[in-house]
């Protein structure tokens, strides 16, 4: 297989396979959760479930000062890495073109040096996160192979993307192909790892907010 053939495969059949598994997997997982259903609350309401749910979806991204201080590292590193990751996924011009091709939607991009910097920042954040995961008492206790897998699946596209952009080590087509392949692996495993939280967190937050909101508490 020549490197351009490799690139063509990941841009063609590889992408097809990954996208189909990703979309199907996510939908199945979501239905698998939602269809379990939950009982209607029969107690007299003190507040709105819907509003509470929606409110928590938003407010759970912000923490009160004391909580922030207690979990500063987790919150700050999490913020940095998620921001960098999401911005470099959704605001890099070539990526937007991909979304446009698949979904027909497009939006303005950020300058490439900015994306470049964001990717580096995310990579550094992810490295500190794994260092902490391996050293912190609570994290070590919680760790499962799945945590390391999810970390690997996330950092690989960042690193390969960075390498492809700067053409480090290998011919450009190969680097680009490896980058796309790493994203495809991520997509394929996404629905079956904790990466799924990217979707289910909205449900979880909504439920949390709805349960509290019903009782008149903003959670």
């Amino acid at each position: 297989m020549s490197e351009i053939e490799f690139l063509d495969w990941v841009r063609g059949p590889g992408f097809q396979i990954a996208a189909v598994i990703f979309v199907a997997g996510v939908i199945i997982r979501i239905l698998e959760i939602l269809m379990l259903g939950r009982k209607k609350n029969l107690a007299e309401a003190r507040g709105s479930e819907m509003l509470g749910g929606l409110r928590t979806i938003v407010t759970r991204s912000m923490h009160d000062k004391a909580t922030f201080q207690r979990s500063a590292f987790t919150i700050v590193s999490g913020y940095i890495f998620h921001t960098g990751l999401l911005l470099s996924i959704f605001f890099f011009a070539p990526h937007i073109l991909m979304f446009k091709e698949v979904f027909g939607l497009s939006w303005p991009s950020l300058p490439t040096p900015v994306i470049d910097a964001l990717a580096v920042i995310s990579i550094i954040a992810l490295l500190t996160i794994i260092a902490r995961r391996m050293s912190n008492k609570v994290m070590r206790f919680l760790n499962t192979p799945g945590d390391y897998l999810a970390w690997l699946l996330t950092i690989t596209p960042l690193v390969t993307g960075y390498m492809a952009f700067h053409r480090i080590g290998l011919p450009a087509p190969t680097l680009l192909a490896i980058h796309i392949l790493s994203v495809e692996i991520l997509l394929v495993l996404f629905p079956f790892t904790k990466l799924m939280h990217a979707f289910t967190l909205f449900m979880a937050r909504w439920y949390n907010g709805a349960i509290s909101g019903y009782r008149g508490v903003a959670s």
């Binding site: 841009r11 997982r29 991909m98």
Partner: peptide, 29 residues
């Protein structure tokens, strides 16, 4: 086609996948 675009038309397949998955998901659910 820009280099970052998939080379095949996948929108159609994604729609099929979504439809199939919806059915499968309903079954699993």
């Amino acid at each position: 086609k820009a280099l970052s675009m998939p080379t095949e038309n996948i929108t159609q397949n994604i729609i099929y996948a979504a439809a199939g998955a919806a059915a499968a998901g309903v079954a699993v659910g």
